[in-house]
Design a protein around this nucleic acid. Structure first.
Length: 473
RNA sequence: GGCGGCGUACCCAAGUGGCUAAGGGAGAGGUCUGCAAAACCUCCAUUCACCGGUUCGAAUCCGGUCGCCGCCUCCA
């Protein structure tokens, strides 16, 4: 089966055929850097990171562009509040963003352009629109004339007339049409400003994506992605700008991820229910746990975030890593199953991923593989184990999961759990020694007392031929 | 008001015309163990919000009802 994506533009799931064979050009809307990124951003970033990885896995050469919006009202206001420059503010949050991305194992895109570094490209584009009478200037501002673009509303599947009816639109007398949007805004004193044919000012929000996407990817390009909340107006306006100016399509496949909700409500600052990536990561033993949660539901569905989901993902990941650790021990460092032909697992994984990047189904395949691997381990079938181990590594590579050495993951989880318990490893070891002595004396009553005592404090003992080891919870 | 989506077991979550409704978590029993843990095995939805219809056959298509969510304003 061929790779298929759900395309917002057509409302259908379609086979993916890139413009140029073997190459994919993809643009994803990044973040506005005026604050820490939250788990809603993480959802979008991870979703498209997996799509990026899977396209590469499928043999495509991918050019992936993701922007930083580093000029906008929120940035200016926040910088003023703090008495720092907009640039200082955005530099700080770009650094934080990068560290979040690294933690979440998101691969760096091919290009990460910043809006402020592409002002001339935007000015050129606005002038093209003005020349085509798709834009008009009023007192140093420039607006896009939506009713001059016949296809306006085609992405969001709305008609201009319908939007006016119930919409909460601020009436701006200077606009020719209530839905007209700013391409260029005149600046007040003290605000970041660039020279333009219309006087000092700064770009509107949507124009940067139109300018930067075509600059790095050409037009049309293959895939344009972002959160579902960007469909209207942001992406609709990008289409109006780019297609209006160039007379050809902007992008062919429009992909949108679903929103993250908390207790059934979308995260937002006003509701006070947003959770930063940093805060979410502080609740888990390793960042992969958050990534696992994010990939446990299909990228287009709404995802209701909860600490329960984190806990379940933590257990699921631990199950996988435990098996991988067993496998690595059984196989030994030298041996590997890479040379062996791909088996049914990889093919079923591909089928799941080909189906609009169905990561929950793909994870199901992986858990199937894990069970099979444990069975092979129990049965001492090492060659089978080696093949499965290599397959799971490959599938994990596409999802950006199971990338840690298993022993390291398990140790990490142990440490995290231990931090919540009130015991030191030394104290635990001492009790284990005492228990070992008791067991040697066949004093099982005392031995069981120690087990129970530790269990009460969340420490689980595991006896084996080589001695007793412990884990948390 | 317009547009879009969702409602599947105790919880999470795939499946969108036809073999036994994936997978994970929780729970129950078993194998193993001095006892445990882990792992494995078995069980855990004759049923997919509800009501009609189409069909040889529907969770899946069509119509309607109820409930929830998102967008239409800055938003990933």
């Amino acid at each position: 089966m061929a790779l298929r994506f759900h395309n917002t533009l057509t409302g259908k799931t379609e086979e993916f055929v890139p413009l140029r064979s073997g190459e994919v050009h993809m643009y994803v809307c990044g973040v506005t850097v005026y604050d820490r990124s939250h788990i809603g951003h993480a959802r979008a970033l991870v979703a498209f990171d997996v799509i990026y990885r899977y396209l590469q896995f499928s043999g495509y050469e991918v050019t992936f562009v993701r922007n930083f919006t580093d000029v906008d009202d929120k940035i200016i206001n926040r910088a003023n509040e703090r008495g720092i420059s907009a640039e200082e503010l955005t530099d700080t949050y770009i650094r934080d963003f990068n560290s979040d991305m690294q933690a979440l194992r998101c691969l760096p895109p091919t290009h990460e352009p910043r809006a402020t570094q592409h002002i001339p490209d935007m000015l050129t584009l606005i002038q093209e629109l003005e020349a085509k009478k798709l834009a008009y200037a009023v007192d140093g501002d420039v607006y896009y004339a939506v009713d001059r673009f016949a296809a306006y509303g085609k992405l969001a599947h709305r008609r201009l007339e319908d939007m006016e009816a119930g919409a909460r639109i601020e009436v701006d007398e200077r606009k020719r049409h209530p839905m007209d949007f700013a391409l260029w805004k005149s600046s007040k004193p003290g605000e970041p400003a660039w020279d333009s044919p219309w006087g000092k000012g700064r770009p509107g929000w949507h124009i940067e994506c139109s300018a930067m996407s075509s600059k790095y990817l050409g037009q049309p390009f293959d895939i344009h992605g972002g959160g579902a909340d960007l469909i209207f107006p942001h992406h609709e306006n990008e289409i109006a700008q780019s297609e209006g100016a160039k007379g050809c399509a902007l992008a062919r496949y429009w992909l949108h991820n679903g929103m993250v909700t908390v207790e059934q409500e979308k995260m937002s600052k006003s509701l006070g229910n947003f959770l930063t990536i940093e805060a979410a990561l502080s609740k888990v033993s390793t960042p992969e746990v958050l990534r696992q949660v994010l990939l446990s539901s299909h990228y287009r569905m709404a995802l209701d975030f909860s600490t329960q989901k984190l806990a379940e993902a933590e257990k699921g990941l631990a199950r996988i890593y435990k098996t991988l650790a067993r496998a690595d021990e059984a196989i030994g460092a030298s041996n590997n199953g890479d040379r062996l032909a791909e088996s049914a697992h990889i093919n079923r994984f591909r089928e799941a991923m080909d189906d609009d990047c169905n990561t929950p189904r793909a994870l199901g395949m992986i858990f199937d593989g894990v069970r099979e691997m444990n069975r092979a381990l129990d049965g001492g079938q090492i060659p089978e184990v080696a093949v499965l181990r290599s397959e799971i590594a490959k599938m994990g590579g596409v999802l950006g999961l199971f990338q840690e050495p298993p022993a390291q993951f398990l140790e990490h989880q142990k440490q995290t759990g231990l931090a919540e318990a009130s015991l030191t490893p030394e104290a635990i070891e001492a009790l284990i020694d005492e228990r070992a002595a008791a067991r040697k004396e066949k004093d099982f009553q005392r031995a069981d007392e120690i087990r129970a005592q530790l269990a009460e404090q969340g420490i689980v003992l595991k006896d084996s031929l080589t001695g007793t080891t412990w884990t948390v919870r």
